Amino acid sequence: GMDVRRLKVNELREELQRRGLDTRGLKAELAERLQAALSGPSSG
């Protein structure tokens, strides 16, 4: 899988935006949010 901790802030935001998620917050928050999205149930 993707290691969200290795991504830069702008990369985290890009991935979040692609999934329609909130791109605001600290890098740690963005990484946590993206990780949750990646490990969560895949819809679609």
Rank of each mutant, 00 (worst) to 15 (best):
G1C: 15
G1L: 11
G1P: 13
G1H: 14
G1R: 13
G1D: 11
G1F: 08
G1T: 11
G1I: 14
G1N: 12
G1Q: 12
M2H: 08
M2R: 09
M2K: 08
M2A: 07
M2D: 07
M2V: 12
M2S: 07
M2L: 14
M2E: 06
M2W: 08
M2P: 10
M2I: 15
M2Y: 09
D3R: 08
D3H: 08
D3I: 09
D3Y: 04
V4D: 03
V4C: 11
V4R: 04
V4E: 03
V4G: 03
V4Q: 03
V4Y: 04
V4K: 04
V4L: 08
R5Q: 11
R5H: 14
R5E: 10
R5S: 14
R5P: 07
R5G: 13
R5Y: 07
R6Y: 09
R6S: 12
R6T: 10
R6M: 10
R6L: 11
R6E: 09
R6Q: 11
R6D: 09
R6P: 04
L7P: 02
L7W: 06
L7T: 03
L7C: 10
L7G: 02
L7R: 03
L7K: 04
L7Q: 03
K8S: 15
K8A: 10
K8Q: 10
K8V: 06
K8H: 10
K8M: 08
K8E: 14
K8F: 02
K8C: 08
K8N: 15
V9Q: 05
V9F: 10
V9S: 06
V9R: 05
V9G: 03
V9H: 05
V9M: 10
V9K: 08
V9E: 10
V9I: 14
V9N: 04
V9D: 06
N10G: 10
N10M: 08
N10L: 07
N10S: 15
N10V: 10
N10T: 13
E11M: 05
E11V: 06
E11Y: 04
E11I: 05
E11S: 04
E11W: 05
E11P: 00
E11R: 05
E11K: 05
E11Q: 11
L12S: 00
L12K: 00
L12Q: 00
L12D: 01
L12A: 01
L12P: 00
L12I: 08
L12G: 00
L12W: 01
L12Y: 00
R13D: 02
R13T: 05
R13E: 04
R13M: 09
R13P: 01
R13I: 14
R13Y: 06
R13Q: 07
R13V: 10
R13S: 03
E14T: 09
E14Q: 11
E14V: 09
E14A: 14
E14D: 11
E14R: 14
E14I: 10
E14L: 11
E14Y: 10
E14S: 09
E14W: 10
E15L: 08
E15V: 03
E15K: 03
E15F: 04
E15R: 04
E15W: 06
E15A: 08
E15Y: 04
L16M: 02
L16T: 01
L16F: 00
L16I: 02
L16V: 02
L16N: 01
L16D: 02
L16Q: 01
Q17L: 12
Q17W: 08
Q17G: 13
Q17K: 15
Q17A: 15
Q17T: 07
Q17P: 00
Q17I: 07
Q17D: 09
Q17S: 12
R18N: 09
R18K: 15
R18F: 05
R18V: 07
R18T: 07
R18Y: 04
R18D: 06
R18A: 09
R18P: 01
R19S: 03
R19G: 04
R19T: 02
R19Y: 03
R19E: 04
R19V: 03
R19K: 06
R19A: 05
R19I: 07
G20L: 01
G20Y: 01
G20N: 06
G20E: 04
G20Q: 04
G20T: 00
G20H: 06
G20P: 00
G20A: 02
G20R: 03
L21H: 05
L21G: 04
L21F: 00
L21T: 03
L21R: 04
L21Y: 00
L21P: 03
L21I: 08
L21E: 05
L21W: 00
D22W: 00
D22A: 06
D22T: 02
D22F: 00
D22Q: 07
D22K: 06
D22G: 05
D22H: 06
D22V: 06
D22E: 10
T23N: 06
T23D: 14
T23Q: 06
T23Y: 05
T23I: 06
T23W: 05
T23M: 02
T23S: 06
T23G: 02
T23K: 06
R24K: 15
R24A: 15
R24P: 05
R24M: 13
R24E: 15
R24S: 15
R24N: 15
G25H: 01
G25T: 00
G25S: 01
G25Q: 01
G25D: 02
G25F: 00
L26R: 15
L26V: 15
L26G: 15
L26E: 15
L26D: 15
L26Q: 15
L26W: 03
L26S: 15
L26K: 15
L26M: 12
L26N: 15
K27F: 11
K27W: 15
K27L: 13
K27A: 10
K27Y: 13
K27G: 06
K27Q: 11
A28V: 09
A28D: 14
A28M: 07
A28T: 10
A28P: 10
A28N: 12
A28H: 15
A28G: 10
A28Q: 11
A28K: 13
A28E: 14
E29Q: 09
E29R: 05
E29V: 09
E29I: 07
E29G: 03
E29H: 06
E29A: 09
E29T: 07
E29F: 02
E29N: 05
E29M: 06
L30Y: 01
L30E: 02
L30Q: 01
L30N: 00
L30F: 00
L30I: 03
L30D: 01
L30A: 01
L30W: 01
A31Y: 07
A31D: 03
A31R: 14
A31L: 15
A31N: 03
A31E: 14
A31H: 05
E32Y: 05
E32G: 07
E32H: 10
E32S: 10
E32A: 15
E32L: 09
E32P: 02
E32R: 12
E32D: 11
R33Y: 02
R33P: 01
R33I: 02
R33W: 03
R33F: 02
R33A: 03
R33K: 03
R33V: 02
L34D: 00
L34W: 00
L34E: 00
L34T: 00
L34G: 01
L34V: 01
L34M: 02
L34P: 01
L34H: 00
L34N: 01
L34Q: 00
Q35L: 15
Q35H: 10
Q35N: 09
Q35A: 12
Q35C: 14
Q35E: 13
Q35V: 10
Q35W: 08
Q35F: 09
Q35K: 10
Q35Y: 08
A36M: 10
A36K: 12
A36I: 10
A36L: 10
A36S: 09
A36G: 08
A36W: 05
A36E: 10
A36T: 09
A36Q: 12
A37H: 11
A37S: 07
A37P: 01
A37T: 05
A37G: 03
A37L: 05
A37I: 07
A37Q: 05
A37Y: 11
A37V: 08
L38A: 04
L38E: 04
L38N: 04
L38F: 04
L38H: 03
L38P: 02
L38K: 04
L38R: 05
L38T: 06
L38S: 04
S39I: 11
S39Q: 14
S39M: 13
S39W: 08
S39D: 14
S39T: 14
S39K: 12
S39E: 12
S39H: 12
G40D: 11
G40P: 11
G40R: 09
G40K: 11
G40L: 09
G40V: 11
G40M: 09
P41F: 11
P41A: 14
P41W: 08
P41N: 14
P41I: 14
P41S: 14
P41T: 14
S42P: 11
S42T: 13
S42R: 10
S42G: 13
S42A: 13
S42Y: 04
S42H: 11
S42N: 14
S43E: 12
S43L: 13
S43A: 13
S43V: 12
S43F: 12
S43W: 12
S43R: 10
S43Y: 12
G44W: 09
G44S: 12
G44Q: 13
G44I: 13
G44L: 12
G44A: 12
G44F: 10
G44T: 13
G44M: 12
G44E: 13
